[in-house]
Design a protein around this nucleic acid. Sequence first.
DNA 1: AGTGCGACCCGAACGC
DNA 2: TGCGTTCGGGTCGCAC
Length: 282
Amino acid sequence: MYDKIYLGDNMPELAEVETVRRTLNNRILHKKIVGVKVLYNKMLDNEEEYFKKILINNEFIDILRVGKWLIFELKEHYLLSHLRMEGKYFIKNSLDEISKHEHIIISFDDNTDLRYHDTRKFGRMKIIEKKDLYETPEIKKQGYEPFSKELTPSYLLDKFKNKKNPIKTCLLDQEIISGLGNIYVDEVLYLSKINPLRKTSSINKKECERIINGAKIILEKAIEEGGTTIKSYTSSLGVIGNYQKYLKVHKREGEKCYNCGEIIKRIKIGGRSTYYCEKCQK
DNA sequence: AGTGCGACCCGAACGC
DNA sequence: TGCGTTCGGGTCGCAC
């Protein structure tokens, strides 16, 4: 039941989002939507009234994913949902008290709710017509995912050849590789032994190969952890974030490199905290 | 076109 | 203790 193929031949990854996708796919499909509450409408890209109108009396037919975007399939529309960093979905009884950080509440006819919870209010949702999916910028722009067969050293080398910015910045660019965030990029560069400040165009083919392999290793481990947290999904869930204990550099400023003992450095690249080992990453 | 940076949020961590 | 300030995370939109 977890082997659904979605939008091409991607392997499951992007642990957090993929975990949510799989779990919800087992929990909310084909239930009639009988109520929608919008408690914070700035997270919607649609007019609130349109958003509600489309959802009411509709049902979720499937849940897909492209990059970090969740795609809830409705009868004639898709609901796109981005969790950013702290968005979570909970399944609760419709009678349960609404908590402070629940912003969108979708009620089903079996007295359960799908509730979107986001302490930072950073997540976004958007309903589009089905025919527009691949023309929607959020989806159209996504590059290849680390497990895609299309993501080859040659592809990366080509994308990198004219880039003047640091490699760290390019790995965060979802249009080149889809699915790596700030934490994973630090880990991938550490594993690949590449200095995050390196000018992107200086990355050679061997290094591209190390980046791709590194991304696969990091994400495989992360989804494995996502897989273990899946078990903790009960009537109301939360999930996310068992991977922290495996981090080799991120958030380890001032601590010793596990490989060489050098002190892990923290700098800013493109406004983002970046952790790395000066000695191991050339 | 490519690149950089501020804005969006608010809880946690920090400084005084 | 309690206050104010800073930070971070992904993406968009704007300025250069």
